[in-house]
């Protein structure tokens, strides 16, 4: 649990239910506030609806992921931010009964078209999960797995080169360089998460998706990851889902606020946090509900 989470003021159940019901109506009635597009996007989400069986989780969301910027996706639990994130590399394919309509474009091509192989897509759009999930293998093999299966290297030297660069970019190299053959599961939580980031960047993706990457970490490890995210954006495009508004404010350039499956407001991060235009956004960032 992130330390900043405790700052939101808990409301009674009854009040928040009223707010949520009202909120859904307000969110459904209004188009997204702010500019969903951006210059030079690396991915474009266009009018996407997502269904889990009968239940609709995302309603008509359009949103650009800009190049070399960090896009933060915030909103109360169950608002669909993780669902949308998982649409971006088709991880939702693995969920039974999940259906996506609309388009998600990368280089002008719909990633949900038949021509797109999810294997290639996921090599271009990496992902870091909520809970650190290193493979029960050595640190080296964790990072080397991606390059190996994609056949990115032909020599052992090249592979070692990639592993070292990736670990160094993830800020982990100095801590583990003497024990690359030790199991990755033996690292601390924060180190494991950085290992997962190293694993993701080892295949040189264009976009990195992060699903609450710090929610299982302590504040110090969180600070390290946030620093890392800030550096990584010069090389990659990053979309991060977070529950912590402080984190969104610290690491992102653009912020998107979701509410019960609707994209309520998008804008430059400093604008969203200083002068939100939409009533729901304002209520959320001032801690009326969360």
């Amino acid at each position: 649990m992130d330390a900043t989470e405790t700052l939101t003021i808990p409301l009674t159940d009854q009040l928040s239910e009223v707010d949520f019901a009202a909120g859904q109506k307000i969110a459904a009635d209004h188009a997204t506030v702010g500019d969903v597009t951006c210059k030079n996007p690396s991915m474009r989400v266009k009018e996407v609806d997502v269904f889990y069986g009968e239940k609709q989780a995302i309603f008509n969301v359009s949103l650009d992921i800009g190049s070399n910027e960090v896009l933060a996706m915030i909103g109360p639990s169950g608002c669909g931010k993780t669902t949308l994130l998982r649409c971006l590399n088709r991880m939702n394919d693995t969920i039974e009964g999940c259906r996506v309509t609309g388009q998600v474009e990368m280089d002008g091509q719909n990633i949900y078209s038949r021509k797109m192989d999810p294997v290639l897509l996921r090599a271009r759009v990496g992902m870091v999960f909520q809970k650190p999930n290193p493979f029960p293998k050595s640190i080296f093999d964790n990072v080397a797995y991606g390059p190996r299966i994609h056949g990115l290297v032909s020599h052992r030297d090249e592979l070692e080169e990639i592993v070292h660069t990736s670990l160094s970019r993830a800020g982990l190299l100095d801590e583990v360089k003497d024990r690359l053959d030790q199991p990755g599961t033996g690292l601390s939580g924060g180190q494991q998460q950085r290992l997962c980031i190293a694993r993701a960047i080892a295949v040189s993706p264009e976009v990195i998706l992060m699903d609450e990457p710090c929610s299982a970490l302590d504040p110090i490890a969180t600070a390290k990851i946030e620093e890392l995210i800030d550096e990584l954006r010069y090389k990659f495009s990053i979309a991060i889902v977070t529950h912590s508004m402080q984190q969104a404010a610290r690491v992102s350039q653009r912020t998107a606020y979701f509410h019960l499956g609707y994209l309520v407001e998008v804008g430059p991060t400093k604008d969203i946090f200083t002068m939100p235009k939409h009533q729901l956004t304002e209520e959320y960032i001032t801690g009326r509900f969360g």
């Binding site: 991880m91 693995t94 996921r122 990496g126 295949v203």
Partner: peptide
């Protein structure tokens, strides 16, 4: 999560 991690790197 292990399978997701593998799918996640392609």
């Amino acid at each position: 999560s292990i399978k997701e991690a593998a799918l996640g790197v392609g």
